[in-house]
């Protein structure tokens, strides 16, 4: 059993290290989740199990503000992710299927560079851009900014998937009398679908979660969930913030799970 001797679980310090990492990663999340079900007004003293703060989120004094922020967040995330995914799909098709063109490497660099630019720089630049063209800040500016910064995130999984789809499938379709459009919609698009869905979910989460850029380009009075939460926290942390955070966490977990099952079902076919 030579395999056993190289078993990483037998390395000294493996167990304490694992526990330390898991604790650092998950303890805060677990604490927030548990305390969101606390019936106390305090965020640290446990008094008993209750859904009080969840009710408060939906009916309390701040309910209107949070509902509007949540609506903004979800519609922006949905529209931005859809638009960015469409653009990224077309970009990937062009980049990978157009053969060797001169500026291909440069184009690829330009699409993926925003992933490496510090977000604060993008935020400032976007704000200056909107100001200089005289855009009034509000819902539209947030949406446009989100579409722009979601494109590279959507592009990565889509182009990775497309590189794995050989072009002989499209050639076979053309050979079997399909038009170029039919070869795209009936063959390439279905084969790329797992990548497109991953790209969409990633863009959706990134948009939903964004704080820095949103905070810069949003106008007065227009809030998304992250900026609304930040605003509320500035006045002191109340347990209803933990309830909202827990719900956001649940949404993320659901989306990651969907993404996981889609990639798994794809492996089977």
């Amino acid at each position: 059993m030579t395999k056993r001797t190289h078993d990483i679980r037998r390395y000294p310090g493996f167990l304490p290290m694992t526990i330390l990492c898991l604790t650092l990663l998950y303890a805060p999340l677990i604490v927030v989740t548990i305390y969101s079900f606390n019936s106390s007004n305090s965020i640290t003293n446990w008094e008993g199990l209750s859904l009080r703060w969840y009710v408060d989120v939906f009916t309390g004094p701040e309910a209107e503000k949070f509902k509007r922020a949540a609506w903004n967040s979800f519609t922006i995330a949905l529209i931005a992710a859809t638009t960015a995914t469409t653009i990224a799909t077309l970009a990937a098709t062009g980049m990978i299927r157009a053969g060797q063109f001169k500026l291909r490497t440069l184009s690829f660099g330009l699409i993926s560079l925003p992933l490496m630019v510090p977000e604060i720089v993008t935020a400032v630049a976007t704000l200056i851009f909107f100001n200089s063209i005289g855009f009034v800040r509000g819902y539209t500016t947030i949406l446009l900014a989100h579409i722009a910064f979601c494109i590279p995130f959507a592009y990565m999984p889509i182009s990775a998937r497309m590189q794995g789809v050989e072009d002989t499938y499209e050639q076979a379709a053309l050979d079997l009398y399909a038009s170029k459009r039919q070869a795209f919609t009936k063959i390439l698009l279905p084969l790329m679908m797992p990548g497109i869905i991953s790209g969409f979910l990633l863009a959706f989460i990134i948009s939903l979660d964004d704080f820095i850029i949103t905070n810069f380009v949003k106008g007065a009075g227009v809030e998304t969930l992250p900026t609304a939460i930040f605003g509320a926290v500035k006045q002191g942390i109340k347990p209803n913030i933990m309830a909202i955070s827990t719900m956001l966490l649940a949404v993320s977990i659901i989306m990651v799970t969907i993404s996981y099952f889609i990639s798994k079902s794809d492996n089977k076919t």
């Binding site: 050989e166 002989t168 499938y169 050639q171 050979d175 009398y177 063959i187 084969l191």
Partner: peptide, 17 residues
Amino acid sequence: PNKRPVNTVFQNYALFP
């Protein structure tokens, strides 16, 4: 290619997965 009355059996078959 889609207008030619010619069909191909590809080397790697290229069946639509």
